[in-house]
Nucleic acid binder design. Structure first.
Length: 219
DNA sequence: GCGACAG
DNA sequence: ATCTTGTCGC
């Protein structure tokens, strides 16, 4: 159902990984989404003892937050955790999980950064470019400094890296830390923040990531 | 050279 | 990410 573009093989060294990011970075497209999305996917990976991991993808109906589909895939670690090269650790398993989806989502919400990345090619960009699906990065920790948005749901401040605005620190609830939203592929920052707010009516993180995280813990 | 650094 | 007690709040 979902086609994964064969743009590169999975590297085993950091320098190869960086070269792939630099080669794929120009393929990212920032654009206003054509239509209002009806479904959104949450992607997450849980780690187990040793090199075992569990990749989870859930598809929710944005209007009702009902879970329409979910895939839980057990796999194993292929690349160490290196800040800036996160996709090479999590994307292989997440892509295999995405291929097993029955309901194709209108947009991907990734657990990590998109353009808010040192080379402007975080996990959300990587998954977006390889699937050609619109994608958004929702991180719990920023990769750079930021000014705290006011403590009101919906408040935000720009996230800058070097001299570019690469994302936003977005307050999804008063009294909790903001989340860090950036474009992954085929989306824009305003629409991304609006969607994250709709998906997080009650908690800090969007329901998509919460359900995916939950499934990863119990499986 | 040293520290910082998505999950 | 994961390892973990108690505590505050709905």
């Amino acid at each position: 159902m979902l086609k994964i573009r064969d743009l590169h093989s999975w590297p085993s060294t950091e320098s190869e990984a960086v070269a792939i990011q630099q080669r794929l970075r120009p393929l990212v497209r920032v654009e206003t989404p054509t239509a209002t999305p009806r479904t959104a996917a949450g992607l997450d990976v849980a780690y187990r003892d040793g090199d075992a991991l569990v990749a989870v993808v859930t598809v929710l109906d944005i209007a009702t937050l009902a879970v329409l589909d979910s895939v839980v895939l057990r796999s194993t670690t292929t690349f160490p955790y290196v800040p800036g090269l996160f996709a090479f650790r999590e994307a292989p398993a997440l892509l295999r999980a995405l291929e097993r989806l029955t309901v194709l989502p209108d947009v991907l919400l990734c657990d990590g950064q998109g353009l808010a990345h040192p080379r402007r090619f975080g996990l959300a960009c990587h998954l977006g470019v390889l699937t050609e699906l619109p994608s958004i990065g929702v991180g719990k920790t920023p990769m750079g400094p930021f000014d705290a948005p006011e403590d009101v749901r919906g408040a935000w401040t720009p996230l800058a890296l070097d001299n570019d605005v690469v994302g936003r620190a977005l307050r999804t609830q008063a009294g909790v830390k903001p989340v860090f939203v950036s474009v992954g592929h085929r989306y824009d920052l305003d629409a991304a923040c609006a969607l994250v707010l709709r998906l997080a009516p009650r908690y800090r993180l969007p329901e998509t990531t919460r359900t995916a995280d939950h499934l990863g813990r119990i499986n």
